[in-house]
Write a protein that binds this DNA or RNA. Structure first.
Lengths: 156, 156
DNA sequence: GGCAAGGTTGAGCACCGTGCTCAACGCCGG
DNA sequence: CCGGCGTTGAGCACGGTGCTCAACCTTGCC
């Protein structure tokens, strides 16, 4: 079912290893023809498996060194407006809807703890937000990666 | 204090809007000289504000359509081995160390709910893991973005 | 007021990667 | 046995890159 086969996985692995690698370079290191890599990359992009390259901007460099996770319980009657309100807060950089006692998980950045408190109040002020629970992220133990999944796919 | 000024923010915004934009194109749309954009991008990259372009691979296309969040309490005596063990599980795609009653938050993908159960047991089997609480992500309400922060920085 | 420094700008340069097309080859399934 | 599909090598025009240089304008300082 996975639309990516062994060769695709190897290409994606090599690309993850060196995001700036050129199609020509990939073909060389993988022992494939340039056209093959080109065609497969095009298929991966069109199938949606490979998203547009996202330029990662470090929030810390923008003056927001603090990262926190805010679990939210929201009123079930007006979820759309509530989620929109939360997503509209600039410091909220990601929102996930989840099962469980919390309904939303928001990833929030802040300039410092005082600023985090301010943002927390902003979130609580959004209509429909019932409760919120904030934890501070101390360390990114494992940065987001799909490499192990790709390695498994590469072995077939 | 932020090492990025108004012009930097505008460049990063344009780059976020079109990740495949060329230096030449950016210079055109922003009304800057090619050399200027070039120099600032180099500084941003060297300062670490702009990370290497990460090719986003959709886990769903790899056969892992399910995303879950696992909150973990771990024994404080052997945190290093425990976190390493958790990070070593292929389905674990991200791990954050947090304050609060849970010590770790793991982002986990799975093929289906049965598979998620299996992965949950894998996590629990890691020495040092005391408790775990799993919630399933129903929807990405707001995909990760720093655009609002950049817009604020762009206005100065 | 004048001076030095840093950022910006325009120009020019050689190099290389891109996206594409074409034709030929090999493999697998019908 | 034959048709289709993916791979491969070749070739081609185009354009972006990274770099250097010199000139300019601002900013801050003496």
């Amino acid at each position: 079912m996975p639309s990516v086969d062994t060769t695709d996985a190897r290409i994606l692995l090599a690309l993850d290893d060196d995001p700036d690698a050129t199609v020509l370079g990939l073909a060389g290191t993988l022992g494939l023809a340039r056209n093959t890599v080109h065609a497969r990359l095009r298929r991966l992009r069109e199938s949606g498996a490979l998203g547009a390259p996202s330029r990662r901007v470090d929030p810390a460099a923008l003056g927001y060194p603090l990262l926190a996770l805010v679990t939210l319980s929201i009123s079930q009657s007006q979820t759309a407006e509530t989620t929109a309100g939360i997503a509209g807060i600039p410091e909220v950089v990601e929102v996930l809807a989840t099962t469980g006692d919390g309904d939303l998980l928001a990833r929030v950045v802040a300039r410092d703890t005082r600023d985090l408190h301010r943002v927390g109040n902003l979130v609580l002020a959004v209509p429909g937000v019932l409760r919120s629970s904030t934890v501070i992220v101390l360390e990114e133990v494992l940065p987001a990666t799909v490499v192990p999944l790709l390695q498994r796919a590469a072995r077939g």
